[in-house]
Design a protein around this nucleic acid. Structure first.
Lengths: 92, 92
DNA sequence: TTGATAATTAGATATATATCTAATTATATA
DNA sequence: TATATAATTAGATATATATCTAATTATCAA
């Protein structure tokens, strides 16, 4: 339903770690990998999930692929949560 | 890491549907079940997950158990997301 | 106390996810 | 063009998750 893919993407600790790394600015996979103890193949897989959740984007530069944070979806989720909370009928 | 359990809980469409139902106020399982096409056992399982993610609470009244939305965690997540976004180094 | 009702728990299963190693693709450079 | 580098894709596997039916627990009412 709403943001299912994004919530699922945000639920994994390794993916959260990737997002933390990207907070400092765009980075190639090698840099992202420095903070993780999993294989490059698995990191690629996580990056794919983050991409399909619209949480990151990527661009190739030479042999490297740089990943970038995409903040708009997080904003949308934050807003949706606040709206959800706000719309709740509060009892007496 | 951060809110992993809650993000995972929010990722499932049936659980989202449960939260939507509870937005109108507390409800027993039978009412929650009206909007879902899955067994009561599975609904119990989803309610357990929502409870362990602190998204709902419950109280027994006679033979029924009433479930209730817990908004504080959603607030926390919303804030954490905004903080995360805000703390990102924006380039030039 | 017996039976009915409301919900959870147990046990099984099918699907999804995270992970790995090995193979492949894309790019740069000697 | 051959080789090295950066990353992804393929294929396999183990674990987690969603789901079901059947059994159990808790409560109420006859």
């Amino acid at each position: 339903m709403f943001f299912s893919r994004t919530f699922a993407a945000l639920a994994d600790p390794n993916r959260q770690s990737i997002l933390q790394t990207l907070k400092k600015g765009e980075a190639p996979v090698a840099i992202i990998a420095e903070n993780l103890q999993i294989s490059l193949a698995t990191i690629s897989h996580h990056l794919d999930i983050l991409k399909r959740a619209d949480l990151v984007s990527s661009r190739r530069s030479g042999r490297q692929i740089f990943y970038n944070l995409n903040m708009s979806v997080m904003e949308e989720i934050s807003e949706a949560l606040l709206k959800f909370i706000g719309s709740k009928k509060t009892k007496k």
